[in-house]
Design a protein around this nucleic acid. Structure first.
Length: 189
DNA sequence: GTTCTAGAAC
DNA sequence: GTTCTAGAAC
């Protein structure tokens, strides 16, 4: 077994592990799966940022929001429905939000279904917090509406990434911050 | 996406 | 001294 087919996967430099594709691995991990049907798979987030944190993913390979086409509207609605059902099933008393990150790190379209207690040791820094409490978190309904109206979804990436650096001065933050066990970042007000 | 860490900031 | 930030990870 010597080196013959080393064109693609044996470059000496700049070979970063494929963590971006980690979701595809999780998709087929039966331990992570909590629901499947013909069109979608729901898994538990590997690093949940709240008590309940699910990811709803289409089986169809859609890389990101930019790849969405008008004919995907029904699929998104289906994802939203199943996400809502999963939230209800998990805990009907908790509040949930369903939405997408403006600039997700992981490849493969995924809808976040996350309880609003944000009580988790995996919620460790400002970026984590802001990605679920600022406009960086885009409501599922908003995406669906925009896709219906324009046939595509466009977001200003630069602006979105700035959102993650905002100070922690949102009122919601001040209320919620008391629930953290491991996160003691200082807040703005 | 996480982990680790050097250097800045406090 | 500790905390925070930004960048590399083969």
């Amino acid at each position: 077994k010597s080196d013959n087919d080393s064109d693609e996967d044996k470059k000496p430099v700049k070979k970063v592990p494929h963590w971006k594709g980690g979701l595809l691995t999780s998709m087929h991990d039966s331990d992570a799966q909590v629901y499947t049907d013909d069109d979608v798979i729901i898994i538990k987030d590997k690093y949940p940022k709240a008590t309940y944190h699910f990811l709803v993913m289409p089986k169809e390979n859609i890389p990101n929001l930019k790849s969405l086409k008008k004919e995907n509207v029904e699929l998104l609605q289906h994802m939203h429905e199943k996400g809502k059902e999963m939230a209800e099933k998990a805990d009907p008393d908790l509040q949930f939000r369903l939405g997408y990150h403006a600039v997700p790190s992981m490849s493969h379209l995924h809808l976040h279904v996350i309880s609003q207690d944000f009580d988790s040791p995996c919620l460790k820094n400002k970026k984590h917090w802001n990605s679920f409490t600022t406009e960086y978190f885009i409501e599922s309904e908003e995406i669906i509406e925009e896709l219906k109206k324009n046939g595509k979804v466009v977001k200003d990436v630069n602006h979105s990434q700035e959102l993650l650096k905002k100070p922690l001065s949102d009122s919601l933050c001040c209320i919620q911050i008391g629930t953290y066990s491991t996160w003691n970042m200082q807040i703005g007000t």
